[in-house]
């Protein structure tokens, strides 16, 4: 419960963060809200030599409208996302899902960028931004990149971010179809999802049904083809490889995915 020794540095700007990352090399890590990284360090599952605290880079905390898109700075807290009036009207799926993350302390410290960069398949926001067709904007020593959400999550805790590369912004097109739903299934209010489902229009994604957030492709195709919603939902577990752990075996998670997708589709339809 006590981390191994590390060096702490703090960046005041994106440029300084990138500079410190170059200096820190392989064993440096960005520290945002710390709510995923610090627990791992305390359990000594992560042993970075240098921490670059980006938590006070004010320029990366914002929510704004830009050319038909909503743009969100990577350091925006879950709480700010959940309470944003702009998101409440333009991207209620995201605002609602952010309000389901952990508990109030977690939502005040944790950031959207940290959650996406951490890429925990049980996390809420990765599947949500996948459903929303977001683009992730990064900056690294060799310049800026724009990565579609579908290409960002590579594996368990693994993303397309390169060492020293900073996620700076999440850019989301305003949805054409308004109906949405977020179904988070937990034992307790504060838990991570055992299974989660995000629906925006005809886009359906799954939380904790594989090593990355997954698109429920078979469901989307069935809905597009005009299937009854319950029939479409029956395809929810196709192509998934859910974990088998204390909170649920594979068969149970597959069943939950079908139930929750059905509920999500119905709720989304009722809202459109």
């Amino acid at each position: 419960m006590i981390p191994a020794p590390f060096t702490y540095t703090r960046a005041a700007s994106v440029d300084e963060a990138l500079e410190l990352a170059v200096q820190g090399g392989e064993d440096a890590k960005f520290l945002a809200g710390g709510h995923s990284l610090l627990p791992l360090m305390k359990l000594r599952l992560a042993v970075p030599e240098t921490l670059i605290d980006i938590g006070r880079i004010g320029e990366l905390s914002y929510i704004a409208e830009q050319d038909g898109h909503i743009v969100i700075g990577a350091l925006t807290s879950h709480d700010a996302v959940a309470r944003s009036g702009l998101l409440g009207s333009e991207l209620p799926l995201l605002a609602h899902a952010a309000g389901q993350v952990g508990d109030p302390q977690v939502r005040h410290r944790g950031t959207i960028g940290g959650s996406l960069a951490h890429a925990d398949p049980a996390a809420d926001l990765p599947a949500v931004i996948l459903a929303l067709g977001a683009t992730l904007v990064t900056r690294g020593a060799s310049g800026s990149r724009e990565i579609p959400a579908g290409d960002f999550f590579l594996d368990l805790f693994e993303t397309a971010l390169r060492p020293g590369e900073l996620l700076t912004e999440i850019r989301i097109p305003k949805p054409h179809v308004t109906g949405w739903s977020y179904q988070k299934f937990t034992k307790r209010g504060i838990d991570w999802a055992i299974v989660g489902v995000a629906v925006q229009g005809g886009s359906v994604t799954l939380v904790n049904m594989g090593s990355t957030p997954l698109r429920a492709g078979a469901v989307e195709r069935a809905v597009a083809a005009g299937s009854e919603l319950r029939d479409a939902a029956a395809h929810a577990a196709e192509g998934t490889s859910p974990p088998d752990d204390l909170n649920g075996g594979r068969a149970y998670r597959e069943h939950l995915a079908r139930v929750l997708v059905a509920r999500g589709l119905e709720e989304a339809r009722s809202r459109s």
């Binding site: 034992k187 209010g189 204390l246």
Partner: peptide, 29 residues
């Protein structure tokens, strides 16, 4: 009744050794 259980695997390793896995109750439940 609903949540808590301290569990071990067959080798005797505790599998609920943190408060993420050992589910104490909160007011929300």
């Amino acid at each position: 009744a609903l949540l808590e259980e301290m569990r071990y695997d067959a080798a005797g390793n505790p599998v609920t050794g943190t408060l993420v896995d050992y589910a104490i109750i909160t007011a929300a439940e």
